[in-house]
């Protein structure tokens, strides 16, 4: 009978709404393992271009950066196009020198009206916020995760 649907629906009237009332900035969509924008540790990267080789989306190319980097004499560092990356974390996994990390910065934090801003140069990449790091070389920093939402 149609009543069965109505009866169930009435039950839901008295439940807490499932809808998120105020979609806050960090809502339950984000977790502590989220794969998002990268951080490059420029004091570790040797310019081996392993990350460039493994990237399935060809989002990484190596560019030369001014400055002195003893471990990286050719001064070649990865530049990542966040508008091309698929956030698979393969580059992080395959970096032999543990120089790349991923943070939980995704989507709306990267929103832009001008898409050329998401092509991140090595220097921009190295300025990321280390407190947001979610993925490291042995993958997924956080072993213990708080329950969310």
């Amino acid at each position: 009978m149609v009543l069965s649907t109505i009866a169930e629906a009435v039950k839901y009237l008295f439940k807490r709404p499932y809808t998120r009332l105020v979609p806050a900035k960090t809502g339950p969509f984000k977790t502590d393992r989220m794969r998002g924008a990268h951080i490059l540790d420029m004091s570790k990267c040797t310019g081996c271009s392993m990350c460039q080789q493994v990237c399935p989306a060809n989002a990484i190319d190596m560019v030369e950066v001014p400055g002195q980097y003893p471990q990286n004499p050719r001064r070649r560092f990865p530049r990542i196009d966040l508008h091309r990356c698929t956030f698979c974390a393969l580059c992080v996994e395959y970096c032999p020198f543990d120089a790349l990390y991923m943070t939980s910065v995704t989507g709306f934090e990267l929103y832009t009206r001008d898409k050329s801003t998401t092509l991140k140069s090595p220097v921009e990449l190295s300025r990321g916020d280390y407190t947001l790091v979610t993925v490291k070389r042995d993958l997924y920093v956080t072993k213990e995760v708080k329950a969310s939402g």
């Binding site: 698929t86 929103y111 898409k115 998401t118």
Partner: peptide
């Protein structure tokens, strides 16, 4: 011509909201 871009593969619902809000 495009008025807004949100990166992501794929963007989450929040990100789409941000896009349309902007």
């Amino acid at each position: 011509t495009v008025s807004g871009w949100v990166p992501g593969c794929m963007p989450m619902p929040d990100d789409w909201t941000a896009l349309i809000t902007d």
